[in-house]
């Protein structure tokens, strides 16, 4: 800090004025007084945990031998860890299939409710949104009863048709079964994002379209879809983050579908089991940081691409 503490002599001041410079005003800390409380919370809640995770990821704690500094060893291990990449590719496939289906359904629902051709659209809006209000753990348990192929609804359907085709917990179906639950949970949430974007379209635009003789489909194409483009980008980014963080659904289903869901089914489950069952806090922190970086890069790429399109 280099602030002037004593009153400058008049002569010096004048000399400065002659050189065309003004005395530097004393630094004003009032801004910090406003921003300070925020900064403290921000540092404690966001920066400190991140820094701590980074710090942890540079060490290795052993049951025998204690903690040693290992530099980037954990990162090297993680990059070559087949279990981690298996989980990663699983959530990536999940992302590629589930997110488009969910967002399309949400968009259709939002357009339907916005079309003003629906009776009791308020009721539909509420009912579609309701699953989002159900805690994820409860929702998954509920679906677990439906999926049960011994005594659940799936078993009853199999009995009814005399087949054993419907096996939501079978290894080849389980990812789809999870996708179904996630879609059910989040269609309403995304619908609400799209719906609120549609609500911001000024009435004059519709009026102008009508005067121009635009058909319902043309209105959809030229007015409504451009209006929700920004919302779609945001919803996509949320969904990407959500997919990469997939945890609740497989974790709650795991005991119901014995041994189908492994401890490294998704990167988050892998990190969780590493740290809580395996006491490998350091390696778990490394996995979490790598996953965070990948998520940030992909989300950022989507945002860049999405906004560029918007500019066109």
């Amino acid at each position: 800090m280099t602030t002037v503490l004593t009153e400058p002599a008049v002569g010096v001041d004048r000399a400065r004025a002659a050189r065309g410079r003004r005395p530097r005003p004393p630094r004003d800390w009032r801004g910090w007084q406003f921003a300070g409380p925020f900064a403290v919370v921000f540092v404690l809640v966001f920066i400190a945990p991140l820094a701590y995770a980074l710090w942890l990821s540079l060490f290795q704690t052993r049951m025998i031998g204690g903690t040693v500094f290992v530099g980037f060893d954990n990162y090297a291990t993680a990059l070559g860890d087949a279990q981690f990449w298996d989980g990663f590719s699983r959530v990536f496939v999940f992302l590629l299939v589930q997110v488009p289906i969910m967002l399309l359904l949400a968009l259709v629902a939002a357009l339907a409710i916005d079309s003003a051709r629906l009776y009791a659209s308020g009721l539909f809006r509420l009912v579609i949104f309701l699953p989002y209000a159900v805690p994820a753990v409860v929702a998954v348990l509920m679906w677990g009863f439906i999926y049960g192929d011994n005594f659940g609804l799936a078993a009853d359907l199999n009995d009814l048709f005399g087949t054993d085709v419907i096996r939501p917990f079978a290894p080849e179906w389980i990812l789809g079964s999870i996708g179904n639950i996630v879609t059910w949970e989040f269609v309403g949430y995304n619908m609400l994002i799209f719906y609120s974007a549609l609500k911001t379209v000024p009435y004059e635009l519709y009026e102008a379209a009508e005067i121009d003789g635009a058909s319902g489909f043309q209105v959809l194409k030229a007015v409504k879809l451009p209006a929700v483009r920004g919302a779609v980008v945001i919803a996509t980014i949320f969904s990407i983050i959500g997919s990469f963080q997939l945890f609740n659904e497989p974790n709650v289903i795991a005991p119901l579908a014995a041994n189908v869901i492994t401890s490294d089914y998704t990167p988050n489950m892998y990190a969780y089991n590493l740290s809580f069952a395996g006491q490998q806090y350091n390696y778990a922190a490394t996995i979490a940081i790598i996953m965070g970086l990948i998520t940030a890069v992909i989300a950022y790429a989507v945002q860049l691409r999405g906004t560029r399109r918007e500019d066109r």
Partner: peptide, 10 residues
């Protein structure tokens, strides 16, 4: 026991 499902469980 926690990684039993990943191996024997298969």
């Amino acid at each position: 026991n926690s990684i039993f499902p990943d191996t024997v469980g298969t």
